[in-house]
Amino acid sequence: TTFEIRVGDLRITLHNADEEEIRWAEEALRRGIHADEILRTLEERRR
């Protein structure tokens, strides 16, 4: 599944994310964390 998060002009697309990952990514985007860093962190958490 694919889920797109939008916060203002910012956007990130997550693939195969669970609800916790989606909530975490949305909050991180709101705090101004760059999408590349969010994706990198999620990848590390999945390992």
Rank of each mutant, 00 (worst) to 15 (best):
T1P: 07
G8K: 06
L42R: 01
E26F: 12
L14R: 01
E19A: 12
I38H: 00
E19H: 12
E37K: 08
R46A: 04
E21F: 04
E27I: 06
T1I: 15
E27S: 12
D9M: 06
A17F: 06
V7S: 05
E43V: 07
E19Y: 12
V7G: 02
G32A: 02
I12V: 13
T13A: 04
R11N: 12
E37W: 10
D9N: 10
E44K: 03
A35D: 05
L29A: 08
E21R: 00
D9Y: 07
E44N: 04
E43L: 10
R11W: 12
I12Q: 02
D18G: 05
N16I: 05
E19P: 11
G32V: 01
I22N: 01
T13Q: 06
T1N: 12
G8D: 06
N16M: 08
E21L: 02
I22P: 00
T1M: 10
H15E: 13
E37N: 08
E20S: 15
I33C: 07
I38D: 00
L10D: 14
H15R: 05
E27N: 12
H15I: 12
T2P: 12
H15G: 05
I12A: 02
A35L: 07
E21W: 02
E19D: 12
T13S: 06
A28P: 00
R40D: 10
F3R: 09
D18P: 03
R6Q: 14
V7A: 04
E21A: 04
E26V: 05
E37S: 10
R46M: 03
R6D: 09
E27A: 12
H34E: 13
H34F: 10
T41N: 10
D9V: 06
N16A: 06
I38S: 00
R46D: 04
E21V: 02
H15D: 05
W24P: 00
E4M: 03
A35C: 03
E43F: 08
A35R: 10
E44H: 02
W24C: 06
R45A: 13
V7E: 07
L10P: 01
E26L: 06
E19F: 07
L10C: 05
A28I: 02
E26R: 10
I5W: 01
T1L: 14
L10Y: 10
D18C: 08
I22V: 06
I33Q: 05
E26T: 12
I12E: 02
R40V: 11
T41F: 12
L10G: 06
T41M: 11
A17H: 03
H15C: 04
I33D: 02
W24V: 02
R31K: 13
R31I: 14
E27P: 00
L29C: 04
E26M: 11
G32S: 02
I38C: 00
A35M: 07
E26Q: 09
E20W: 10
D36G: 08
R23D: 03
D18Y: 09
E43Y: 07
L39H: 12
H15W: 13
L10F: 09
T13F: 05
L42T: 02
R45F: 11
R47K: 15
T2M: 12
E19Q: 13
L14N: 00
H34M: 13
A17K: 02
L42E: 00
D36H: 01
A25V: 14
H34D: 14
L10S: 10
R30F: 11
H15L: 09
R11A: 13
E27Q: 10
R6G: 08
L42D: 00
D9G: 05
G32I: 00
E37V: 12
D9K: 04
A17P: 13
R40S: 12
L10Q: 15
H15A: 08
R6C: 04
D9Q: 08
R11I: 15
T2V: 10
A25H: 00
D36K: 06
D9A: 08
R30D: 05
T13E: 09
G32T: 01
E26Y: 10
G32P: 00
I38T: 01
G32E: 03
R46G: 03
R40A: 11
T1Y: 14
A35S: 12
V7L: 09
D18M: 07
E20M: 08
L39A: 04
R31M: 15
N16F: 07
R40F: 14
A28K: 06
R30Y: 09
L14T: 01
I12D: 02
R45D: 07
F3Y: 12
R45G: 11
E44C: 01
E19L: 06
L29G: 03
I5Q: 03
A17S: 04
V7R: 01
L29Y: 06
E27C: 15
D36E: 14
R31W: 09
T2L: 11
W24Y: 15
H15T: 12
A17L: 07
L14S: 00
G8Y: 05
I12S: 01
F3D: 09
I22Q: 05
E44Y: 04
E19S: 10
E43W: 06
H15Q: 06
R46I: 03
D18T: 13
E44P: 00
E27L: 11
G32L: 03
R47W: 09
